[in-house]
Structure formats: structure tokens, C-alpha cells
């Protein structure tokens, strides 16, 4: 087995709305190795969640993947028949969503929902499924798991609910879990716990994680590599430490400057000027140019992907590398 787990090439997911074609994901390429934790950051509407859903083939109409390639263990997922894709989901690639209150079914017990997930891929007896469910719940840190199987989601706290969702995603030890803002809906203290536990679990089981978040601080504490997305494109990608310490793309710089942790107390937070552009009416060339202090006439042309020693970025006027 090669180290390469996932290879995404020129992924394009567009939404065909009445107002026009929304290019939510427009030419995204990246690779992931087994067990790697990859952070995907960007503002709301940057296409990071749609990228995640595209990986599982879960893009709802009117959206669909119109081009590109997603290879999981060398197997092409784009254009794969729905039934084969279904057999892959949950077994080799799984997903955790933002709000466990919305994702878990409120009228089914946790045990029932886990049993459904187990039986989606394995023919096992009810008793065996319950045992499996209890052992997975124990793994994600739910105390007295066997007894909790008969409880309903509302009888769990927010953090415990998200643990249940994580347990469902981990049931079949998939090679890849897409985590779409899994800690955003949680209390800050619980966020840190879940963050830590998910990283541990991924390390133990060799599961790779795509960690999607708008929060650079969260991502930086969990991801080895980081990708910054803007208006459906990757604008910068590289090892987390390098990108955070020494960003080349002005947008990444803007995101970093807007973090409270980097500001001195009493100082006003710097924000990225302007708003996210409407994906229906993107400017020609670099979509960030209208908000960018470094923009010039050249920026009406699409910037090429450029690479320095360790990372890739997409800008005509990159920031200088720090010494």
C-alpha cells in the first residue's frame, strides 16, 4: 500500500441555480497521505464545506461535480455508480458534521443509530451490533457506554453528542474522515477536548482527517498541513507552521491578522477589508484582487500556481518570505 491516500485533481463542483451557475469549488487540487491531518480554512461561502461533501459524493442538487478527479486509494470516485459510492461511505470515507443536534436523529436511540451504521456494511446480529456500538462509544470517551445505548440524543450533552457522531464515523475505521467544523457548535472547553481526542483517535487508527473550519486557531492546533480556500479556489497550501508563520498569500495574511490571539490587548482587530464576493459575479482573474492591498492591473489575469520550497500559493504579488 502506498502512502498516498487521496488525490484530488482539478475538482469542480458547481451549483446550477436559477440566478446562474455558482462555482462553489472551482479547480481544487491536493493530495493526502495516510493518517495525515489536513486543515481546510476559509470564510463562509469559500467552498470548503462543498469540497468536503464532494469527497463523499454528497453534493445536493442543484449542485454537482462537473469535472476533475477524486482518487481514494487509486480508485476514482467521480462518476462512480451511486450504489458503489454508498458502500464506500462510512466504510472507507466518513464524515462528521458541525452540529450533532441536527445530524443525530432525535427520535432514534443512539444504539439504534449506531446499529444502522454498523449494519450498513456488515451483516451482524443485533446483539453483536450492540456490543460493537458500545465498544466504539467507549473508544470515543463515553462513560458507561453499554447503558447509554438506549438513551436518545437529547439526553446527551453537546460534547457527548458530538462524540456519538464521531463514533458513528469511526465505526468501520475508515481511511479518511471529513470533519466539517466539528467543534464549532460546542463550548470552548469541550472544543479543546474533542479536538485533542479526534487527533488521538486518528493517530491510533491511522485515519486521515480533513479538518474543515473557518477558525485558523483551531485548525492550526490539529492539522499538519493547511489549505486556505477563497471563492472556490485554493489560494495557499503548505505545512501548518510555515503557512502560519510566514504566509505568502495576502488573504492568508489577512486571516491571520484578524485572529484575536495575534493582536495586542486594547488594539483594534484588523479585518480583511470588504466582503466575500458573490460566487455568481466573480471578478476576472484573482477573485481576491478587489479586497487586496497589493493588487495591480496584473491581477485581472488568473494567477498561476506557484511553489516555493515547501508550499504552493496563487498570487501575482506574494508577500516576501520572512528571513
Amino acid at each position: 500500500m502506498s502512502a498516498l491516500l487521496l488525490e484530488v485533481r482539478d475538482l469542480r463542483t458547481h451549483f446550477f441555480t436559477r440566478a446562474g451557475v455558482v462555482k462553489a469549488v472551482d479547480g481544487v487540487s491536493f493530495t493526502m497521505e495516510r493518517g495525515q491531518v489536513l486543515g481546510l480554512v476559509g470564510e463562509s461561502g469559500s467552498g470548503k464545506s462543498v469540497t468536503g461533501f464532494s469527497l463523499l459524493g454528497l453534493v445536493d442538487p442543484p449542485g454537482r461535480i462537473v469535472g476533475g478527479s477524486i482518487r481514494l486509494d487509486g480508485e476514482e470516485l467521480v462518476g462512480m455508480p451511486l450504489d458503489e459510492l454508498r458502500r464506500l461511505r462510512g466504510r472507507r470515507i466518513a464524515m462528521v458534521f458541525q452540529d450533532p443536534m441536527m445530524t443525530l436523529n432525535p427520535v432514534l436511540t443512539v444504539g439504534a443509530q449506531m446499529t444502522l451504521a454498523i449494519r450498513a456494511h456488515e451483516k451482524v446480529t443485533g446483539v453483536a451490533a450492540r456490543e460493537r456500538a458500545a465498544s466504539v462509544l467507549t473508544r470515543v470517551g463515553i462513560p458507561d457506554a453499554a447503558a447509554r445505548l438506549d438513551a436518545y440524543p437529547h439526553e446527551f450533552s453537546g460534547g457527548m453528542r458530538q462524540r456519538v457522531a464521531i463514533a458513528i464515523a469511526m465505526t468501520h475505521s475508515p481511511g479518511l474522515i471529513v470533519a466539517d467544523e466539528p467543534t464549532t457548535a460546542l463550548d470552548v472547553s469541550i472544543q479543546a477536548q474533542i479536538l485533542h481526542e479526534m487527533r488521538e483517535l486518528s493517530r491510533e487508527s491511522g485515519t486521515a482527517l480533513v479538518w474543515i473550519s473557518h477558525d485558523l486557531a483551531t485548525v492550526s492546533s490539529v492539522a499538519e498541513r493547511i489549505m486556505v480556500m477563497y471563492a472556490g479556489r485554493l489560494v495557499e497550501e503548505g505545512p501548518t507552521a510555515t503557512v502560519l508563520r510566514d504566509p505568502r498569500h495576502p488573504y492568508t495574511r489577512g486571516l491571520l491578522d484578524s485572529l484575536p490571539a495575534t493582536a495586542r490587548p486594547g488594539q483594534e482587530l484588523r479585518q480583511v477589508p470588504g466582503n466575500t464576493p458573490s460566487l455568481l459575479a466573480l471578478p476576472p482573474g484573482c477573485p481576491f484582487a478587489p479586497r487586496c492591498v497589493r493588487a495591480s492591473e496584473r491581477c485581472v489575469e488568473d494567477p498561476e500556481h506557484r511553489v516555493d520550497a515547501v508550499r504552493a500559493f496563487r498570487c501575482h504579488h506574494p508577500l516576501e518570505r520572512a528571513a
Binding site: L56, L58, D60, R86, R87, L88, R89, G90, R91, A94, M95, F97, D99, M102, T103, L104, N105, L108, A112, L116, A117, A120, H121, A165, I168, A169, T171
Partner: peptide, 19 residues
């Protein structure tokens, strides 16, 4: 999202509707 999550776990459409 409940249905989306169930699909992400690989449940078949029939199971999703029934359960």
C-alpha cells in the same frame, strides 16, 4: 443534516426511509 449524516455513514436509501 440527519439524512445527510445517515447517507455519509453509508446507509442505503431504503434503510434511511424506513428507519
Amino acid at each position: 443534516d440527519t439524512i445527510k449524516f445517515a447517507r455519509a455513514a453509508g446507509l442505503s436509501e431504503g434503510t434511511i426511509v424506513r428507519h
